[in-house]
Design a protein around this nucleic acid. Structure first.
Length: 109
DNA sequence: ATTCTGACGTGGG
DNA sequence: CCCCACGCCAGAA
C-alpha cells in the first residue's frame, strides 16, 4: 500500500541522491512504483520546500532540463546549486546529463 | 460532481 | 534530435 505518505517516499529518495549527481522525476516515481505519477513526484518536491534537507535542485526532468528552477528562490538558484556540486549547466540544461544521471532503481539498493 | 492545471513521461511522425 | 498528442494522479476553484 504505497499510499502511505507519498511525499515521504520522494523525500527519502531525494535525500539519497549522491552529491554531484542528479535524477529525474520519472526515475524516482518508477522506484516508488508510481511510474505513471512522475508529476506527483514533482508536486511532492514542491511540498518539500520547508525541508532544506531535500536537494530538490538535484531533481530534473528526463531531458536534464531544470524545469523547476522557476519554483526556486531567484531565477537561477537551482543552476547555481548544481554548478556548485560540479555539474555543468548551460541555459538551465544539464551537460553530460547521462554522466551525472543517478538512477535510484539501478544504483540504489 | 466537473473542469483545469501541473517541477512529467512515452510513443508516433 | 525535435514536435505533437495523449496519459496519469492529486489538488484547487
Amino acid at each position: 500500500m504505497p499510499e502511505t505518505n507519498f511525499f515521504e517516499r520522494c523525500y527519502s529518495v531525494a535525500k539519497q541522491i549522491p552529491y554531484g549527481r542528479v535524477t529525474s522525476y520519472g526515475a524516482i516515481a518508477k522506484y516508488l512504483g508510481a511510474a505513471r505519477s512522475a508529476r506527483m513526484v514533482g508536486w511532492a518536491m514542491n511540498a518539500s520546500h520547508g525541508n532544506d534537507e531535500i536537494p530538490a535542485h538535484r531533481v530534473v526532468n528526463r531531458k536534464g532540463l531544470l524545469t523547476g528552477k522557476h519554483h526556486f528562490q531567484g531565477t537561477n538558484l537551482m543552476q547555481q546549486l548544481l554548478e556548485s556540486e560540479g555539474i555543468v549547466v548551460v541555459d538551465s540544461q544539464i551537460q553530460n546529463f547521462s554522466d551525472v544521471f543517478w538512477d535510484p532503481s539501478h544504483e540504489l539498493l
